[in-house]
Amino acid sequence: MNWTWFHRLGSPPTFFRFAEKLAPWLAALALLLIGLAGYAGLFLAPPDYQQGDAFRIIYVHVPTAAISLSIYVLMAVAGAVALIWRMKLAEIAVVSAAPIGASFTAVALITGMLWGKPMWGAYWVWDARLTSELVLFFLYIGVIALNSAFNDPRAAARACAWLALVGVVNVPIVKYSVEWWNSLHQGSTLLSVQAIQKPKMSFDMLWPLLMSLAGFYLLFGAALLRRMQNLLLERERRARWVQDWLGEQN
């Protein structure tokens, strides 16, 4: 296995230039997919036989909820890399992912509440999955708050990495305990092998959802790259390559 690409990408200037090229493409593709999925979800997909048009919010709710969880896992993996190899880029990834994760979680919570109003008759119901999403939101807030409490960005990132690692062990426990506590939500519509083989949703409803999921993932990728670029510029401001790059911009 040749790992030189890993080390080369781990060097801040190389990563910065790579991200500079990649991010606009990711963002454009993300907006295209989300736009198409939005159109298809609102106009092409048939209304649900029980929920009518209210179900259409899943084209935002389900992708953001799914991604909010994977961002936390990604943050923990980046944290492990940062702690084991003392890799600056991974430290930056941890710190950059947290606010994006919190935003996705917030969107999932808000759309969940909007969906809840017609379905359950109240904006907030102590349903298992909404509740664990809420706890996830607080876990993200914890990482953000911890990061901002330090003066030393390096120690901050390493502390956040430990918090994310302990948190990622905690997330399934929270999810499980909350389910034990109460279950009222409908089963997962999408994310299981069986569901893809024998979909509970009709294909007309499903394909815009998959498209929007891909679009939101790309949007996350673009946002992460941009945040990481900004943080890199700030943390490496004394380095030669930042001065060179700023010179090129003017």
């Binding site: 706890v135 607080f138 876990l139 807030i141 914890g142 708050a145 911890l146 409490a149 330090f150 502390a159 430990w162 918090l163 302990v166 948190g167 905690n170 426990i173 929270v174 499980y176 305990s177 909350v178 034990w180 506590w181």
Partner: peptide, 30 residues
């Protein structure tokens, strides 16, 4: 331990730890 060197750790500590303690609360009161 995470917040040991920080000013205002007293406020930060519950923010970090209370969400993680929700399973203990659920099973304990349960």
């Amino acid at each position: 331990a995470l917040t040991v060197g920080l000013p205002r750790a007293g406020v930060l500590l519950p923010i970090l730890v209370l969400p993680m303690l929700s399973p203990v609360l659920i099973f304990g009161a349960g």
